[in-house]
Design a protein around this nucleic acid. Sequence first.
RNA 1: GCGCCCGUAGCUCAGCCGGAUAGAGCACUUGAUUCCUAAUCAAGGGGUCGCAGGUUCGAGUCCUGCCGGGCGCGCCA
Length: 584
Amino acid sequence: MNVFSHLTCVIHEEIERLCKAGTLPAGLDLSAVSVEPPREAEHGDAACNAALVLAKQARRKPREIAEHLAERLQERVECRSVEVAGPGFVNLRLTADFWWARLAELLTTGPGYGADDLGHGRRINVEYVSANPTGPLHVGHARGAVVGDALANLLAHMGFAVTREYYVNDAGAQVDALARSVHARYREACGETIGAIPEGLYPGDYLVPVGAALADRDGRRWLEEPESVWLPEIRSFAIEAMMDLVREDLETLGVRHDLFRSEHALVGEGRVDDAYAVLEKAGLIYDGVLEPPKGKRDEDWEPREQSLFRATAFGDDTDRPLRKSDGTWTYFATDIAYHRDKIERGFADMIDVWGADHGGYVKRMKAAVSALSNEAATLDVKICQMVKLLDDGEPVAMSKRAGRFVTLRDVVDEVGRDVVRFIMLPRRNDAPLEFDLRKVLEQSRDNPVFYVQYAHARACSALRRGAELVPEAELTPAALARTDFSCLDDPAELDLIRRLCQWPRVLAGAALAHEPHRLAFHLQELAGAFHLLWTRGKDDARLRFVDAERPSETRARLALISAVKIVVAEGLALFGVEPVQEMR
RNA sequence: GCGCCCGUAGCUCAGCCGGAUAGAGCACUUGAUUCCUAAUCAAGGGGUCGCAGGUUCGAGUCCUGCCGGGCGCGCCA
């Protein structure tokens, strides 16, 4: 049970009764009525804004409505006390019995507590990483990879049918440059002296083995051929090698996509022409000349007529070109075709996870999706801001030009997959992120990975001790659910139960808002409440989790711990992080 | 010049559809260890929510303008 949606229902019922009784007018719109955990613990277990929201439409004073509502709620068994506070909030305090019953529910459900069918199997496409196949992934890519993956996990958990997708930009000038770079490395492997890699090509060492592999496979046959002959061959060889590299990098992070969609294939299948024809038929394409961008150096600017998409009709600031001067498609044109491809594959909802440098691209892509779907499809773009990589407070120098950038694999090797994954998550995607290689390995409160993992390890440790006193068959969550919880009446224990019971609400909110970082914050708070109780048990023997002298209390506390373990493990699982059994 | 994002405690950041006295961690000060892992916990000080207007019973949250930072701005992807 999601406690807060349950309480919302209860309050809706009571308001409707007040309407029937004539205390309130009939036909009120209750959609804005909500029940939330109050920010301050003093305000009780749950606060309802009904009176404030309804005051205007009911033409009553908020306090007056609140008093009537409070009177009815007082009768409910789950309410220990009800009070009207502030401008007209109704604050509920729920009985300990109510909370214990929720704890029993949590344990009965076991792993998967909080999973829900919010999505009703609705299909949603999450596209993430989509890095160009020209080299290994770097730390910046890791953020998008982890955020996209966690978001996909979360949505799947909440009843959406998720497809995880990677768009492979294997067409265009950059993969030609890749092919030329590999050709240079190939000549090198064949014994030629190549000197410095020319400007505009990819200088990284990672292409050396690719050139060597090509020489192994094809011998010296490309040495005497003109570029027009070897380029297509070497290009597809190189792209395949780069995608192998990318897949390996993703594998080290534990990220797996369902589908890799190739831009090259999309163009080859005529999908871009199709999309163009559709927009043209809808009257959304015309030939025109764009204004030069102001304030930017414009000495190279020449007015040019090109086919433009009427993006301004869908909220963009200017219309956008679809063809380059040589007649080939712009990136935007193929991206329109790609999103149309997704829509045609049955996705009315799409999420794209992009890097900060694509921020200026969001409006036109949303405009295109609106145009393609007659406003029926949705596109949410999550822009991931920069990752500032630090080593003990000092910025790690990165220079793409010198080929000196920190690869994803370097970082995973350095600190481990789970740390990389967790550290990318407790931050809103549109806020920049600091990643200190030294700090994330510290075992202290300010390292969130450690802090949450430690809570899980402590829970496991206490359960191991419990196993010495209680038969194993009685330690399963389902068995523990039948325990008498009445000794769990300390405020710190009830607080922990309340936080555990907020989990379904946090999951639902995070899924609907597409904000996985909310889970990370909740896990940290939960871990804090648990650590607090643990330490209290050191001072106050009455609160100790495992005590051979007090078997029934021990069982109740093991149940509570088991619930902590379930929720923490579930949160970590959604993040793709392995919960640890002990800290070593 | 234009667009998008950001601006909340000394630092790093939460703040969920507009709600109550704006929160957490770090750092700082003080305290807790014969004890299920002190790898932890408790207490304390610390704020003009960038600035100025506006809408509202009520604004960190919405609107307008400005200031500061980041990213981007046809023939790159």
